Amino acid sequence: MQSILVHVYNDPGIESRLQIALDMARAYDAHLTFLQVVLRPVILPGDYSGIVAAQMMPVAQEQADELRRVIEARLEEEDVRWNWVQEADMTDDMLMSHAALNDLVLVGCAAPQQSSDAPSRLAGTLAIRGRSPVMVAPLHAKSFDPAKPALVAWNGSREASHALRASLSMLKHSSTVYLATVVGEEGPSREGLPAIDGAAYLSRHGISCEVVELPCHARHPAEVLLEAAMSREAGYIVLGAYGHARLFEMIFGGVTRRMLKDPPIPLVLAH
């Protein structure tokens, strides 16, 4: 992993993303690209000529420039390679565009202009429509240790397989890898690959793993996975992101959506 794209936005999770990005850059010897998208003001009802929106744009630009000055001054003191890109457009479009030449996209669990109580639609859009894995940072992470154990959620689906492959470079740094299947849930179809196939794939890449089955006991699979990750002191969870064609605005399947609401540790998503 040599290139990491970091979403810059002045939300409560910006410090968390900065800390995680710096720790990953040092551990993986990676280059950081900080992408700051200046959101265009929304045209309000009655502002048919767009005059109010036009007046708000310089304010938004000034706030963005101030945030950039603060973070750049801090980055100058850090021992990592980085660059800064500022764009004025739609956030998801710009992130997907720049993600094409990055190995990982780091975003927050609270998306711009969205309720903090809802799972990030931005993370879902990037994971499902993009081609790079997405790491969703918790709001209050203080650091990121790539050597900590990793828990990979496995249900035999193509999404789970893709997430496993996309996270290989990270898993190689983990002290322990758990390939975890929640049993007793509505699992994959009969055509789904068994966990032993995922373990064999990891083995061919020099990664040993422990295959574990987690009883559901009528609980939501997301709760089971989070509990398993925390009890094993995992540093992050790898998860397949699920899209629904008929209800794409929901972005996620049930497990992904539940885990994204307030993740205690980083989530690595791929579709």
Rank of each mutant, 00 (worst) to 15 (best):
M1G: 12
V8I: 14
V8K: 02
D11S: 14
E15W: 02
S16C: 10
L18Q: 03
L18N: 00
L18W: 00
Q19I: 02
A25N: 08
H31Q: 14
H31R: 14
L32G: 04
L39V: 10
P41Y: 07
L44T: 06
L44D: 03
S49H: 02
I51T: 12
I51V: 15
V52Q: 03
Q61H: 09
A64M: 06
D65T: 11
E66F: 06
L75M: 10
E77L: 07
R81V: 01
R81W: 00
N83D: 15
V85L: 15
V85R: 13
A88N: 11
M90C: 00
D93N: 11
M96Q: 15
S97I: 08
L101M: 15
C109I: 02
A111D: 11
P112R: 08
A118V: 14
P119R: 12
S120P: 08
R121Q: 13
L122C: 09
T125E: 13
T125A: 14
L126K: 12
A137W: 08
A137T: 07
P138Y: 07
P138V: 05
H140M: 13
H140K: 13
K142Q: 15
S143D: 15
A147T: 15
P149W: 09
A153D: 04
N155I: 05
R158F: 11
A166F: 06
S167H: 08
L168V: 10
L171S: 02
H173I: 01
H173K: 15
V177H: 01
Y178L: 07
T181L: 01
V183I: 15
A200Y: 00
Y201A: 01
L202W: 01
R204T: 06
H205Y: 10
H205A: 04
I207N: 01
C209N: 01
V212T: 03
L214I: 03
E223K: 08
L226V: 09
R232E: 00
E233Q: 14
H244A: 13
F248W: 11
E249W: 11
L260K: 07
L260A: 12
L260R: 07
D262Y: 05
P263V: 04
P263H: 05
P266C: 06
